[in-house]
């Protein structure tokens, strides 16, 4: 017999809101979406720049160090842009640091594309990001108690255990 809705809901995760918003939170995992408007001609600039932006993703996100995954999407006939991320911990307390760290990466993509975005070091841009951030209505996180740092640590441990087992066999 198929499980009832109540039986299925028994596996529900404990979802809360990020302190002072935006974003939902499960365990150590947070989410956030930012939706901005695209300037006329922004689509063309975006497509010219996106390959290098993509190529540098690993560099910048490794620096930030708390992001599990991240995406940028232009939609609605080049009129809107969506940025979303899954990351560890609180959102607002780290916003200034994240913008500081990854600012130059965003600055190579967004000026002339995202309406209102001048430069990551500009107060108005920081405020724009805050204003245009949204919280998901539903959220699921796999292994919500593990941070990127925890995963890296476990991988190191796994490799060490494998190396030990290999040398013993």
């Amino acid at each position: 017999m198929a499980p009832t809705p109540a039986e299925k809901a028994a596996l529900a995760q404990n979802v809360t809101n990020q302190p002072d918003g935006p974003g939902k939170r499960i365990g150590k995992r947070g989410e956030v979406h930012v939706i901005g408007n695209v300037l006329p001609g922004g689509g063309k600039l975006f497509r010219e720049r996106i390959a290098q932006f993509q190529a540098e993703a690993g560099y910048w996100e490794t620096h930030v160090g708390t992001v599990h995954d991240f995406r940028v999407l232009m939609f609605d006939n080049d009129t809107r842009i969506l940025i979303s991320a899954i990351y560890d911990g609180d959102f607002l307390p780290y916003l200034a640091d994240v913008i500081n760290q990854a600012g130059p990466w965003f600055d190579m993509l967004m000026p002339g594309v995202w309406e209102g975005y001048t430069s990551a070091s500009d107060t108005a841009t920081r405020k724009l990001i805050g204003r245009q951030a949204y919280t998901a209505d539903a959220f699921y996180a796999g292994y919500p108690d593990l941070t990127t740092k925890d995963i890296a640590k476990m991988r190191k441990l796994r490799d060490a255990v494998n190396a030990m087992l290999d040398s013993a066999s």
Binding site: K28, G89, D90, P93, Y94, T147, K149, D150
Partner: peptide, 22 residues
């Protein structure tokens, strides 16, 4: 106060993720 006292109290005094200590 948000990025100074409250940051230090919430992220560094009351959590350990920043030093990989859960």
């Amino acid at each position: 106060p948000g990025r100074q006292f409250e940051f230090v109290q919430s992220q560094w005094m009351n959590d350990g993720d920043f030093i990989s200590e859960g």
